[in-house]
């Protein structure tokens, strides 16, 4: 089971991202019928993207038909993950105007992915893609990331658009991801 974290600046520039593989067991998987029916040319360079995206149609169908969860092999595809995270920004943008809570749980869903977000007062967005529900853990995780981010921000060499490259920051975020996700 994997988690994907993105830190986005107020102008939506990605400043940091992290992929975390949890040791917790993944949910039972079933292959989507569409994914298995992909034509042979899908072994091309775009195969992963295609497979992952094909999950979209099959997942919605599956939800209508049996309501079961559908997982497909291409779920780990990097581009698709980034696209899902970026797409969820629209929803987040809409919600932050109405909700004063910083932790927005499950703002968006795409295939097997649930998107949770955390918006700091300075309009930094932390976006997390996850598969299982884990509200309390994610909340604590976001709070720790927020503290680390505030510390980063107090550094005079950090501006709102500087990518965060500090190895200590990375290690700390990884540690709390391990602990809470």
């Amino acid at each position: 089971m994997s988690h994907h974290l993105f830190l986005l600046s107020p102008s939506d520039t990605p400043l940091y991202n992290l992929t975390h593989y949890s040791s917790k067991p993944a949910q039972p998987t079933s292959t989507s019928p569409l994914a298995s029916n992909l034509p042979s040319w899908s072994t091309s360079a775009f195969a992963g993207t295609l497979t992952a995206l094909s999950g979209a149609t099959s997942a919605t169908q599956a939800h209508h038909v049996q309501g079961g969860t559908v997982r497909i092999g291409g779920g780990q595809d990097r581009h698709v993950i980034q696209m899902i995270a970026n797409a969820s920004l629209d929803v987040i943008e809409e919600v932050v105007r109405k909700e004063s809570i910083m932790y927005l749980k499950s703002v968006d869903k795409f295939n097997e992915w649930t998107v949770s977000a955390f918006v700091t007062p300075g309009n930094m967005k932390f976006v997390l893609l996850h598969e299982a529900r884990n509200d309390d853990g994610i909340k604590t995780f976001f709070n720790e990331v927020w503290e680390l981010y505030v510390k980063t921000m107090l550094n005079p060499f950090h501006t709102a658009h500087t990518p965060i490259r500090s190895p200590v920051f990375d290690a700390r975020v990884r540690a709390s991801a391990k602990k809470y996700l």
């Binding site: 932790y103 300075g122 505030v150």
Partner: peptide, 22 residues
Amino acid sequence: TRVLELMTWRNEASSKAPKREI
């Protein structure tokens, strides 16, 4: 920009559901 984040962190981080002003 720094005062805003730090001030809010100090006020809100310990609360159950941290809030922003909207």
